[in-house]
Simulated assay, not measured.
Amino acid sequence: MPVFNVHERLLAAKADEVGALLDSLSDGAADRLWPSRSWGTLEFDRPLSVGAVGGHGPVRYTVAAYVPGTWIRFTFTGPRGFHGFHEFAVLPLDEEHTLLRHTLAMRVTGLARLTWPLAWRWGHDACLEDSLDLAERATTGALPRPARWSRYVRLLRMLAR
Rank of each mutant, 00 (worst) to 15 (best):
V67K: 12
L48S: 04
E95W: 09
G54I: 08
L48F: 09
T77C: 13
V53R: 13
H86F: 04
V53A: 14
A65P: 03
P58H: 06
V59Y: 06
A65Y: 12
G51F: 10
D45P: 08
G84K: 12
L91T: 14
S49T: 14
I72Y: 00
D45L: 12
Y61N: 09
P58A: 10
E95S: 06
G55V: 11
G81L: 01
E87A: 15
T98G: 03
D94Y: 15
W71C: 00
T75D: 12
G55A: 06
T75K: 13
R73L: 13
E96C: 11
V53G: 14
G55Y: 13
T75N: 01
R80P: 00
Y66L: 12
G69T: 15
H83A: 06
R46P: 03
P92G: 14
W71L: 01
F74M: 07
P92V: 02
G55W: 00
G81M: 11
D45Q: 13
G55H: 09
A65G: 15
Y61F: 14
H97E: 05
I72M: 14
E87P: 03
E43H: 10
H97V: 01
P68D: 02
L93F: 04
I72H: 06
V59N: 02
F82T: 08
A64F: 04
V63S: 05
L48V: 07
T62E: 13
H56Y: 05
